[in-house]
């Protein structure tokens, strides 16, 4: 069998390494005895190289392939949000609102400052003057010993502001004592002073371990996820648990919870900047700047 000459298609297939074995042998045999076809082979080799070169010019800038996501075609699976998730969403709303309020410089409740301790000390003097009741002789007598407890009293202020410093031995007396012990502050801190009327609810409550709160309620206490929470109770006999969470400086969310069998806890609504509603057995209270409709929305989500 004699091959006249090979066509370009065969030469390209040969050079591309795509010629079937048998054809390859025949082609090579022909090339061995045909200088013209050998010349054409080199031409085509150059042509292929040139074409590849040109195509390479039209190459996009090298970029890393994004990671393979096998699920990318499928619609995202329906997400089953945990029951409290809406609350977390609402928390960010609250946070934003509180920040806005704070920036206006009209923070109605005590802003949390780095020098909280100093603020507490400064606040003590004006608070004392605000309280028109003169100190009783007994208080005056005890001033000296109680004064030593002043630092712990300052810590108590921290607890009111929402941080988790357990201090179960706080009595109203301590506050009076701190007032006495504090050096007279020439510059009153009105914001801190305002904390006093907002505080009584929390002041009566002692911090308890989370496990204890869980034991009282029989279930995991409700809380906003991903936010530090402090559990409190008013006395060992009381079965109402207060979960306190600070959203932002000046905004504290308090959830009053009690065992399901015992119904909703009845507590007074405090200062005007504090909003409280009931969701089933859950009393939700938000201290700080938050429009009532935002709270309604939050409560709707909790429901």
């Amino acid at each position: 069998m004699s091959i006249s000459h090979v066509d370009d298609g065969q030469l390209h297939a040969y050079l591309d390494g795509e010629l079937p074995q048998a054809e390859q042998w025949r082609l090579e045999a022909h090339l061995g005895e045909c200088p013209a076809c050998r010349g054409r082979l080199e031409e085509q080799r150059a042509l292929i190289a040139r074409a590849s070169e040109l195509l390479a010019l039209a190459t996009p800038p090298a970029r890393d392939a994004p990671p393979f996501r096998p699920a990318m075609a499928q619609p995202p699976p329906p997400v089953r949000w945990p029951a409290r998730q809406p609350l977390a969403w609402a928390a960010t709303v609250v946070l934003a609102l509180a920040a806005g309020w704070y920036l206006r410089g009209e923070s109605p409740s005590a802003p949390v400052r780095p020098d909280r301790r100093a603020a507490a000390a400064n606040a003590a003097a004006p608070r004392e003057t605000a309280r028109t009741v003169p100190p009783s002789p007994r208080q005056t007598a005890e001033t000296k010993t109680l004064a030593q407890q002043a630092p712990s009293a300052a810590q108590h202020d921290q607890m009111i502001s929402g941080s988790a410093v357990p201090n179960p031995q706080i009595t109203p007396l301590d506050q009076a004592a701190r007032a006495k012990a504090a050096p007279p502050a020439p510059a009153p801190a009105p914001a801190a002073a305002l904390a006093a009327p907002a505080a009584p609810l929390a002041a009566r409550w002692e911090t308890i371990p989370w496990d204890t709160a869980r034991a009282i309620l029989g279930v995991e206490p409700v809380r906003i996820p991903n936010l530090p929470a402090v559990a409190k109770r008013s006395s060992a006999a009381d079965r109402v648990v207060l979960v306190e969470q600070q959203l932002a400086s000046g905004t504290v969310v308090r959830l009053q919870e009690r065992p399901a069998a015992e119904g909703a806890p009845g507590m007074e609504v405090g200062a005007s900047e504090r909003l409280a509603r009931y969701v089933g057995n859950l009393r939700v209270e938000i201290e700080g700047a938050l429009p009532a409709d935002s709270l309604s929305k939050l409560l709707e989500l909790v429901r």
Binding site: D7, D8, G9, Q10, L11, H12, A13, D16, E18, L19, Q44, L47, I48, R50, A51, L54, L55
Partner: peptide, 18 residues
């Protein structure tokens, strides 16, 4: 069998057109 032929033509035309 036509792939090689098509490629040969395509490459030539690309180079010529460029």
């Amino acid at each position: 069998g036509a792939v090689g032929t098509t490629l040969a033509r395509a490459r030539r035309r690309l180079v010529e057109a460029f």
